[in-house]
Structure formats: C-alpha cells, structure tokens
C-alpha cells in the first residue's frame, strides 16, 4: 500500500506515530523483532534511515549512530535488505540525504527501493526548488516523496510544499537538528499545520525533531498535526539494548492511544 493511503486510513483511528530506525549492518538480526515491537506499540509506519557521512540535519546522537553504521560497513545493499524485512510489517519510508540516492542514480535508486518494498522516500536536504527531478523519479517508481517544512518558512511556501509532498508532510518542530532541544511553541507551529492543510487538505501532517516522551508528543499533536515522528529518543533506547517489550510499551506512551495491557506478543 502507498504510504499516504495507509496513513490516511489509520488516522481515522487516532493519532499517527512513525518511529525512525537507522539501518546498521551489525543490527540486522534485531530488525524484524524491533519493527514488530514498534508495530505492537502502535506505530503506523516506519522511517528507515540510511546513514550518510555528513548528516547536517542531525544532532549528536544520530550523527554518531550514522558514523558507527558506516564504519561497520553498512551499504545500500543492507538498506534494501532491511526494507525487505520491515516493509512486510509496516509501510516503510526510507530517509537519507540527497547524495547516497543521487550517487545510485535517481531512477535506479527509486526503482530498487520500490522493488524492495519501500513506499516512501524522505530527503532532509532537498529543498522545494531542487525537488522536481526527485518527484518525477519517485512518482515513476511508485514511491511517495515526502517533503519537509520548518519554522520560519513563509506560509505560502508551506502551502506549495504540501501540494508537492506525497505520503505525508514532515513538519520540523524547531530551529535545530534532530535530538534534544525544545520545539517551537504551538503558536508558531499551528499556522504551519493550517497552511499545509490549505495546500493539501488530505495530506497527513507529522511533526518530528525533539519528540522524546509523552509530553513532547502531546505538545506536537497540540499543533493540530496528525501525529509525530520519533527518532533520537528511540535510537538511544536501541543503542543501550532496551528489551523490545519495553520499547513497545514506551512507543505506546508516545502514540496518544490507551496503554496496552500485558506484553506486546
């Protein structure tokens, strides 16, 4: 199923939750149970991160994790393998920077990702002006290209971004990189959500950057967005070997839905 239709269907049941997991060759064996745990915790889709050597939109935690994954020899082939695993459990969007995709050729990369089972692509260093060839290549391959908007961006531009975005709109919560740090207040973010709705009424809007617990997730949803994306805080739990059952319960607390009783199995 396309990313957008999956999320549009799910949002009728409650707020959306999309966790981010970085592909790391050393964690191959853990991916399937991890994604299953995320789904049991209420995740509606997955962002699968492919590490890049120069991740300028990432804070220290994801930057270090990317460096370790590259040092461990994580390749594009590992990404495709990971997509094959995760996309059977959750609709999967791949998130990476422009160069790894560009270096494989836009059309070829999009086709390979789609054939592996991916339904979306997110490129944080792709501005609206540069996105046209990427939109064409992903559309031809049947992938949703998710665009990003951020505080400080003019509302008319947010409307244009929402019109061109597929799958969902990724709304960056603040001036800053991924990880610790405070989101802009609802007063600043809510107009951006409304502008996105005006530009593309059916497109889900998800807020990311700085979502790390129940209160930050609630604050992000208070902007009127359809849900949240959680990355750095999850990476910290994975890196410290948190048991999957515990991750599942923690994800549930972020989802804005009632707690599960009993284990996730």
């Amino acid at each position: 199923m396309r990313l957008g239709s999956a999320l549009r269907t799910d949002r009728t049941d409650g707020p959306l939750l999309v966790p981010y997991v970085l592909v790391d060759r050393r964690r191959r064996a853990h991916l399937r149970p991890l994604v299953a745990a995320l789904r049991a915790g209420g995740a509606n889709a997955l962002e699968l991160g492919f590490p890049f050597s120069d991740p300028i939109a990432d804070g220290p935690v994801l930057e270090a994790a990317s460096g370790r994954a590259i040092a461990a020899g994580t390749t594009w082939g590992d990404l495709l393998d990971a997509v094959r695993v995760s996309s059977r459990i959750l609709p999967t969007a791949v998130m990476t920077y422009a160069n790894p995709v560009w270096s494989h050729g836009l059309s070829r990369a999009a086709a390979e990702l789609h054939d592996a089972g991916a339904s979306g692509l997110i490129i944080p260093d792709l501005s609206l002006e540069e996105s046209a060839p990427w939109r064409h290549a992903t559309r031809a391959a049947g992938l949703d290209l998710v665009l990003l908007a951020a505080p400080g961006v003019e509302l008319e531009r947010v409307r244009r971004i929402a019109r061109e975005s597929r799958g969902f709109l990724y709304l960056v919560s603040r001036y800053g990189t991924t990880g610790a740090g405070r989101a802009q207040g609802s007063a600043e973010l809510a107009p951006l959500v409304r502008a996105a709705r005006a530009g593309n009424p059916t497109l889900p809007v998800l807020v990311g950057f700085g979502v790390r617990d129940r209160s930050t997730a609630n604050a992000a949803r208070a902007t009127g967005a359809d849900g949240v994306i959680v990355g750095t805080a999850l990476e910290e739990k994975i890196a410290t070997g948190t048991p999957h059952a515990q991750i599942s319960r923690w994800v549930r607390t972020l989802s804005g839905r009632p707690a599960l009783h009993g284990g996730f199995e």
Partner: peptide
Amino acid sequence: GGAYVPETLVP
C-alpha cells in the same frame, strides 16, 4: 550548484 539544504535554511 543549486541549494540542497533543509527548508529551515531557505529563508
């Protein structure tokens, strides 16, 4: 050339 940057930097 071009400007491959996060939207935050566009303004």
